[in-house]
């Protein structure tokens, strides 16, 4: 139930602070995002730089990099996802507790980047798991990662606990596990998860 903003402001002037459980819950979550300590390639170096004292992700409440997926809220996919690594990344994501978020960091993680069409490179982790924020760049600067984090915080702020657009964690209809791809003879099986990955359909150019 949303509170009327005007009423809220009036009450605050009178010394009464009114909020909802939803707001309080989201406020707490957005300021204590625990990322998973998980780097795949050179972008991980920028992620480390963002966590260190010069850029200091701790200012935004996300400094506690967890070595276990069971304690993490956020997966920063930092770097090239090889086809050999993809099932492991999906499994790590499955092991994270809800509510969970994914930032795909860098050109490789969002699309395969300079290694797209390579024999062992996945064309973006969003083929298998839902990605909340994509950061382009090769590698993105630490500021870009901080910007992605702030974007994610704004998104968390708007999560709902009830209603039609409620969080996945509070929706029993939604599945909580993503299928882990298998190693096939020529490629991963399946090459993408159709529930998550919906590319633009191929279009035939109009004949002139």
């Amino acid at each position: 139930m949303a509170i009327d903003e005007g009423l809220k402001s009036e009450l605050r002037k009178a010394g009464v602070f009114v909020t909802t459980v939803e707001d309080l819950y989201n406020w707490g979550r957005k300021n204590s995002i625990w990322p998973l300590q998980f780097g795949l390639a050179c972008c991980a170096i920028e992620m480390i730089a963002a966590a260190c004292s010069r850029y200091d992700m701790a200012r935004f409440g996300a400094e506690v990099f967890r070595p276990s997926p069971r304690q993490a809220d956020l997966m920063i996919v930092a770097g090239t996802v090889t086809k050999k690594m993809a099932p492991l990344a999906v499994r790590l994501y499955n092991q994270m507790p809800e509510p969970k978020y994914v930032i795909a960091m860098g050109a490789c993680a969002i699309s395969g980047g300079p290694f797209k069409e390579g024999y062992n490179v996945l064309k973006g982790i969003d083929r298998y798991i839902p990605v909340d924020v994509h950061i382009p760049g090769c590698p993105p600067r630490p500021e870009a990662l901080l910007d992605a984090l702030i974007t994610l915080q704004k998104r968390i702020e708007q999560d709902h606990l009830t209603g039609k657009h409620r969080l996945r964690a509070y929706d029993k209809e939604q599945k909580a596990e993503w299928p882990v791809p298998e190693y096939g003879e020529h490629d991963l099986e399946p090459p993408s998860n159709p529930d998550v990955w919906k590319p633009e359909p191929m279009k035939r150019p109009e004949a002139k």
Binding site: K84, N120, Y183, G184, E185
Partner: peptide, 10 residues
């Protein structure tokens, strides 16, 4: 580099 079940030589 590739997984064990892979059949091609890339």
């Amino acid at each position: 580099l590739m997984w064990d079940g892979f059949k091609d030589f890339p």
